[in-house]
Simulated assay, not measured.
Amino acid sequence: MMMSWRSLFGGRKSGPRPNVVLILLDQFRHDARSVHPVFSTLGDRGCLFSETITYAPYTLASMHATMTGLYGRQTGVDAYTKSDQFQSGQCHTLAQYLQEAGYHTRGYTFSKLLVPPDGFDSLSIVPEDEETGVLANQLAELDAAFAQSKPFFCYLHYPEIHHVIVRDVLRKYTPFDEEYFGNRERNRAAYLEAARGAAEHTAALLEAVDRRDPNGDTLVVVMTDHGGGVGERVGEKAYGVFTYDYTIRIWMYLVCAPLLPAGAEFDAQVRTVDLVPTLLELLELSPSSRHTALTGRSLLPLIRGEETSGRPAFTETGGVEGPNPSPDHPNVKSLRADGWKLIYNQTINTFELYNLVEDPHERTNLYTTHPEKAREMWVKMSEYL
């Protein structure tokens, strides 16, 4: 049996494994958490991984990676058009792990393309044009989950930021529209208003969990799948076109009083593919030996202080629009490691190299002036290509 957090501190808790609630706030920027105190509350109650890097800056590929602990070349979902190519026989999803461990598993999202359905006893798919009240519907999902006689896993995807951006940005402007890219402050203000709605939704869900579980035994994960632009780079109105940090640098909270420390922030770089192995170790479940070995690694060594350095993070995308659209194959790759970032655009064969410590907004391309660092980063990136 694998060593878990609770077995290191006070021994295994008696009784069933904890319920697991995963709240996904679609397209929530790293720098937008200040809009509401719910994020400070989450940080006070659990662990914040403040330098999390997503595999893909769009939901479909990001969540197939997050839910399996595998990158797109392993899941088969590495592009916008490849949801139907998910390698279900080779990948084991978080829902499947928990279902096999005796959990009731249920979820709520707005498209069947966005998350692998494997392992869900119930997966409610409510398209945007049929949604009558996302909060009421997700509270009903929690009610149904807590009514179970066995532990449950409940996945709740909040889509409203995405819906607002699609309606007010993606369908309104072209990828090179001066009206949009020339009004970043206006764009940001509109984005933050949508982010406040997401935060209020999160606070309501957490309050509902606390009412049903006043002891705080439920393992709650709150995270986003990717960030979103507000006009930083001409050609990308929101997400999915490039791999700059405003879309790939995200965050993740893990909260569970019996299992995890409170008020702990970890700023070492981690990846969204690290979530599944982390939950498996916390719940004392073994990775499947019948499926592709996990790419991600448990975050518990960071929590226990056994590991302090960040992990290399690979990201890739292929936009449906922009200067080099490639919806069928990822054509823009990035490798983030040790405070540096290399970006490679396969379509036009260009490279960008950034020192993220000195240049966090990625404005000065050092590729030609730092050839040794560029070669070092290319070798690291090549491991993922």
Rank of each mutant, 00 (worst) to 15 (best):
E160S: 13
E131P: 09
I125H: 15
R212H: 00
D168Q: 04
V164E: 13
H201I: 11
A195T: 07
F176T: 13
T202D: 06
I165Y: 06
E128V: 13
V134N: 12
D143Q: 07
A144L: 05
Q138H: 00
G197F: 12
G216M: 00
H163V: 15
E185G: 09
P214S: 03
S149L: 08
E178A: 12
D217P: 02
D217Q: 14
V126M: 05
L156A: 12
S149T: 10
I125F: 04
A208S: 06
G216Y: 03
T202H: 02
I165C: 04
G119S: 04
R171E: 11
A190W: 11
D217I: 10
V221N: 10
S124K: 14
A203I: 00
A144I: 13
E185D: 14
Y180A: 06
L205R: 01
T202I: 08
Y173K: 10
E179Y: 08
D177G: 02
G216R: 04
N183A: 11
D213P: 04
V221E: 11
L142C: 11
G133D: 09
L142S: 02
K172I: 11
V220H: 12
D143N: 09
V221P: 08
G182N: 02
V209G: 00
C154P: 05
T218Y: 07
R184I: 14
A145D: 06
T202A: 03
I165G: 09
K172C: 10
D129L: 11
I165T: 11
A189T: 14
P159C: 00
T174K: 07
M223C: 15
H157P: 03
L205F: 11
V221L: 08
G119R: 05
F152R: 10
F120T: 06
S124N: 10
R186V: 08
N183M: 02
H162Q: 14
R186P: 08
G197D: 07
Q138R: 05
Y191S: 02
A136S: 12
D168M: 10
P214R: 00
L219A: 02
R167W: 10
V134P: 09
L205I: 04
E130W: 07
A140H: 09
P151K: 11
A194R: 07
G119Q: 03
A198I: 03
D168I: 03
P159V: 07
V164T: 12
D210H: 11
T202W: 03
L205E: 00
A208C: 06
L135W: 06
F120M: 05
I125W: 01
E207C: 07
E179A: 15
S122I: 12
A204C: 09
H201Q: 06
L123P: 03
D121Q: 06
R211V: 09
A189I: 08
S124F: 15
L139W: 06
S124C: 13
L142W: 00
T174P: 05
E179M: 06
I165R: 15
A144Q: 08
E141V: 11
P214W: 02
D217H: 12
D121A: 08
R167M: 08
N183W: 13
F120I: 01
A136Q: 15
P151C: 02
N137Q: 13
C154G: 01
A189C: 14
A190P: 12
E128P: 13
Q148I: 07
F153C: 15
T202G: 01
L156I: 02
V221Y: 04
E200V: 14
